[in-house]
Amino acid sequence: MIKKITLFLLFVTALAAGGYIYTAKQVDQYINQPLQLDTPQIFTISSGTSFNRVLQNLTESEMISSSDFAKLVRRFHPELTQLRAGTYLLESGITLKNALEQFKQGKEHQFAITFVEGSTFNEWRDILQNTPYLEHKLSGLSEAEIAQKLGIQNKKLEGLFLAETYHYTFGASDFDILQRAADKLQLVLDEHWATRQDKLPLNSAYEALILASIIEKETAVESERERVAAVFVNRLNKRMRLQTDPTVIYGMGDKYDGNIRKKDLRTPTPYNTYTIFGLPPTPIAMPGEASIKAALNPEDSNYLYFVASGSGGHVFSKTLAEHNRAVRAYLKQLRSNQ
């Protein structure tokens, strides 16, 4: 009798062990299934979402196949169940286990938003409004109201943010991006203002931003920035009008249709440097650090004029006669290319 009982217990134990091994194997097979993704996909876990609900969401999104053993993952692999809320990028070819480990470690996807040097605040607003996975807090606010929320005294925000690429995670807001861009601009401006050349015709760091924005709009050639800056600094020192087309365009606003006519050069606006002396009242675009540096450390030269060369750069001149010859050469090249 004892022998029979012993054999029975051994049978039950073996059966239980076999069942456990089979179940564990099925659970492992479930968590090691590759995600069904042709391309990388964004997946968000909201705060308070349970582990089982995450598995259900993955199933409903057709990223994984369902299994009766899904509910046993918590028992066999408790180390995979402590997931962090966030937004994740799931790459093609990874397994469910890889994804759960990613969720556990909280390796959220870093989104990126890029603002190009020379862009305007209105363009920034459009970019922010159309950027996904970003909370929109600035919609419907005026420029002055946004400035107030950012703690910026200027009611006009042109030029007060540093143009570059900013990374963010799910849950960040457009306000957060602007605050970071404003803080970064101030750091860069303070750094270069502290190391500026002596006797510049600039009364404040804000005026340096205005000049930097004009430089930004005038040239995209890195090697020309300090020379373009020198032209404007020399003209300011000689009390010559800056006569730079980008300021005319900015002053025209919505009236600009892609062409500047002679009447536009003669039409006064606060920004038209063909009709006003000195700098316009505000920046005309968002400058990059290179243009800020150039504005505060221009080239040591006597150039007073420049015109497009027709090959991507500019021809610089020290006298009006030289400049007029360069203009005629440029116009001749334009006609020959037509």
Rank of each mutant, 00 (worst) to 15 (best):
N259T: 12
D300I: 10
T120S: 05
Q110L: 13
Q129F: 06
K262V: 04
S61L: 02
T95Y: 14
T6G: 02
L96R: 04
L200F: 15
V228E: 02
L187P: 07
G151D: 10
Q105P: 00
G313F: 02
R225N: 06
E207K: 01
H314Y: 01
K332W: 03
A329P: 09
E135M: 12
A229C: 05
A230S: 14
L209N: 12
A144L: 10
P298R: 04
I5F: 09
L90S: 00
G253C: 01
R239C: 01
L58S: 06
I210W: 05
V221E: 01
L35C: 09
D38C: 11
K184T: 02
I214W: 03
P268V: 01
L189F: 00
L96W: 06
V248Y: 01
T319C: 10
F76M: 07
F76C: 06
S92R: 15
K217H: 13
Q82A: 15
P34V: 05
E60V: 14
D254T: 10
Y303T: 08
G93C: 00
A163Y: 03
Q110P: 04
N259A: 12
P246F: 06
Y168R: 12
R196P: 04
Q129L: 07
K155F: 11
R266H: 07
K107V: 08
K217V: 13
I214P: 01
Y206L: 08
H323M: 06
L100N: 02
R125E: 03
L80K: 10
G93H: 06
L211C: 05
K155C: 08
Q102L: 14
L320N: 12
Y330Q: 11
